[in-house]
Amino acid sequence: MNKTALCGILLCLAGSACADTGGRLLATGGVTNIEGSAGGGIVPWAVLSGYGTRDEWGGDAFATRVDTGDYRLDAFGASLAFNNRVELSVARQRLDMDALTKAAGLPHKSLNQDVFGVKLRLFGDLVYDRLPQVVVGAQYKRQTNFLIPSLVGAQRDSDTDFYLAGSRLFLGAVGGYNLLVNGTLRYSRANETGLLGFGGDRRDSRSLLKEGSVALLLNPRWVVGVEYREKPDNLSFAGESDWQDVFVGYFPSKRLALAAAWADLGEIATLEGQRGLFLSMQLSY
């Protein structure tokens, strides 16, 4: 890459030195959840990736790391959104578990899966109009090293999550600050999002799971909020905890978004008290 191009990209990321990515307002594409869908960090929202309006297309590329000490989750992927109507996404997740591998003499050091997502905006608008923005989505997940999940009781190595999400930005709602409210209902039997396979010896059917986020926009660039994600509990060998986090998001331009969170993931595969830092970066186009 030559210097001029690099300089251009850096200027682009820093602000307005390049053509705008799309006609939607700053931060209205959210960031990217660990499964590759536009949203918060752990919950998909009813927003579509990038900044494209009904006349434009857009998308994101993202990378996320969550480190609890015992585990480290890396996720990366990309998405395309067409006319603010349909979002297609792909993400790859890798959960490193050195501590558990050593302690339990496991045959693999990591659990991996790929996620292919589609999201369809049904109606409404995040900011304008009378109805909130509502989407339906599906995430097809493929666990790619299924030996460990199968040994602890997981029933299948691929499956599809379905979800319905509604999001609304309330202008000036809290003491003049803008408030984003999101509710998501997921229908899933993914164990630890699918990294431990799908369905289990305790329960093999899908559960209806509640997920939600509330975020306050301190100004157009800075956002703080909380997220909650209910999880199924299909495997008898260990408990699976609901997840929650508090986050801060920074949108210096429509090209770049950064998110940091303190995530409480509870018990994961017999190891309790999994808490740690969540860091994510997103480029939009």
Partner: peptide, 22 residues
């Protein structure tokens, strides 16, 4: 019961989000 409660909760959230006329 859990599923009914979740559905009712989601419906309320969605209705509550509807904007009001100016």
């Amino acid at each position: 019961y859990r599923e009914l409660r979740a559905t009712a909760c989601a419906a309320l959230v969605l209705i509550g989000m509807a904007g009001c006329a100016s």
